[in-house]
Amino acid sequence: MTQTAAPIRLGIIGLGLITQSVHLPNILGPLRGRFSVVHVCDLSAGLARAMGEELGARYTSDAAAVLADAEVDAVLICTPGAHSEIARQALESGKHVFAEKPYSYDPAIAARDAGFAAEKGLVLQVGYMKMYEPAIAEARRRMQAIGPLRLVRMTVLHPSDERQTDDLGIKRFSDVTQDQLEAARTQNQAEVKAAIAAEAGIDPVLFRNVLHGSVCHQTAVLRALFPKDSVEVISGHQDAPGSQRSEPPKLQLLGRIAGGPDWVISWNWLTHFPDYEEWVEIYGDHGSLRIDLPPPYKKAQLASLTARTVGADGQTLVEHWEPKGANAFTQELMAFASSINTGAPVLSDAGGAGRDAAVLLRLAAVLGS
């Protein structure tokens, strides 16, 4: 492990929405002393140049150049689609890796790369920022007080992407050729096809765009709440099959934490709904916990927690808990730096992402059936 107090020299591959709206403001702001951006890359040469000149960093449209750069200690991978192929190349080049989700559509690939990173003594972290919400850890500390647990219910109200991002001022260029876009699409489709090959009836678009694009955050929260327990899938329902949909579906999903409570995920695409909303409710025999999570691009917000516990006298005590400090996106990169510098365990590792991928594959199968 790298043992240094100097800023970690960072290469960024993929300069689109998540990089510009979240990661760069954090790296240039509260994390300035922990990271230094030295090399950036995007398939759009114009965007790479604009961002590189703005940051005073080297720039390229070839990811291999970043991986070959001896002055890059770690890479932030924020390209579209799954990230296991380029992450593996980065690990083979001796770089620590922070990869945005989805890591891989195939659970075996994620598990394989987790093992490879450990063998190489490198950090491999996956971008599930919700796992770093202080309210998640606080809920885990309080679960015993409301147990035995009976139900975990997760609800997402998801407006169109445009309603969430139109005001962010993202730099975009139109210099990527159709051949380049088609090559990227073909590769992504091949990765999806390989991952679902053993299961009949899976809708590849639902699997890629909805389950791995969004529902993966809910499975990661389940993993954060119950890190040692397996997540079982029982059933799933969608409001309309792919051939009849003009927009993403509403999904109602049901399962069980092994040896523990049932879980329900209600994920609902509501195109014109005013704001993204998400909450988690945990019910036990002696009370409940509710975690209200912030919208993805509200960078200043943290999740809050409401605890209701029933005392021996039958009275209900209600407590609102609102943490202070850095948002979850900042916290996950702080943890990445800490793992690189001190060897601290990775909370959101590729092995866990592989466990999520296995759950998402089972969900896709029950929805397809």
Rank of each mutant, 00 (worst) to 15 (best):
G236I: 00
E247L: 10
A312D: 15
G236L: 01
H217D: 02
P323T: 03
D285K: 05
L253T: 00
Q238V: 13
D292F: 08
Y283I: 13
A303C: 05
W279Q: 09
E332W: 08
A258I: 09
N327H: 13
F273Q: 10
Q301L: 14
T219R: 02
P261D: 05
Q331C: 12
G242K: 08
K299H: 12
G284W: 01
L305N: 00
S235Q: 10
P294V: 07
W263F: 13
K298W: 12
P274M: 04
A335H: 05
T316D: 02
L293H: 06
G259W: 07
S214C: 12
D229A: 15
S243N: 10
V221F: 04
E277H: 10
I340V: 07
W269Q: 08
E281K: 12
K298R: 15
G236C: 04
H320T: 11
T342H: 13
L289V: 02
A224H: 02
D292I: 08
P241D: 08
R308V: 04
D262Y: 09
P294W: 05
K324I: 09
G260F: 03
L225H: 01
L317S: 14
A344S: 14
W267E: 07
G311R: 03
F336G: 01
K324Y: 10
V318F: 06
E247G: 08
V231P: 02
M334A: 15
G260K: 02
S243D: 11
P227D: 06
A312M: 13
I291T: 01
V310D: 00
L293G: 02
D275E: 11
H320Y: 08
G284N: 00
C216K: 03
Q252A: 13
G260Q: 04
L253C: 02
F336Y: 03
S304M: 10
F226S: 01
F226N: 00
A326Y: 10
G259Q: 09
T330L: 07
Q238R: 14
C216F: 05
A240L: 12
S243K: 11
Q252T: 12
M334Y: 12
V210N: 01
H212C: 02
L211T: 02
F273H: 14
A328C: 11
D285Y: 03
L270D: 07
E247D: 12
